[in-house]
Amino acid sequence: MAVGWTVNLHALIAQADAEPSVNIALNIGFGLIATVMIFAAFSVVTTKNVVHAALYLVLVLAGVAAQFILASAEFLAVAQVMVYIGAVMVLFLFGIMLTRAQIGKEDGLNNQGWQLGIPVAVGLFGLLGYVVFNTFEDDVLDERAPFPTEQLSDQYLSAYLVPFLAVSFVLLAAAIGAIVLARKD
């Protein structure tokens, strides 16, 4: 397949819609985004610059949004971009600035016993990888058109109405709680 490195996401999706079989282009696109995400995520937890960490996180979250599009969850992708990249990241950057983090490299961002995280993470990954491979080895995700957004909203306003209301209360409570915590008396 002659798909270069400058693969266009929309073209990919159009192709996916056209050919409902296992799509190599889609897989390659997935692989590229995944590589970027993993690299960025790794940087988030290893970089010595807090601001860089935040920017890498933007990359990871944008990658997640892209993957959502590949998984035919368009509404979620948009929500992801708006909520995370639009709001959460701004919060993070404000948090970094208000706590007067050093601009530039900084030592002491890691714990003394940070090496403990390596075996835990590796062990966890081994477990998850084994379980995932064992269970979903041959499951193929069929190409399909994106889920229509109204289907999502139907779910929210019928079957999941009560949890939906509950989440709105949680958000309200969190907003008030954040104000109460952060204000100077």
Partner: peptide
């Protein structure tokens, strides 16, 4: 596309996140 793709990517992100929670100060 295989389901394993997504799930493994998620597993990698999850483990990196766990590492970050443990290692970061």
């Amino acid at each position: 596309m295989l389901a394993v793709n997504f799930l493994l990517l998620a597993a990698v992100l999850f483990c990196i996140g766990v590492f970050g929670v443990i290692a970061r100060r």
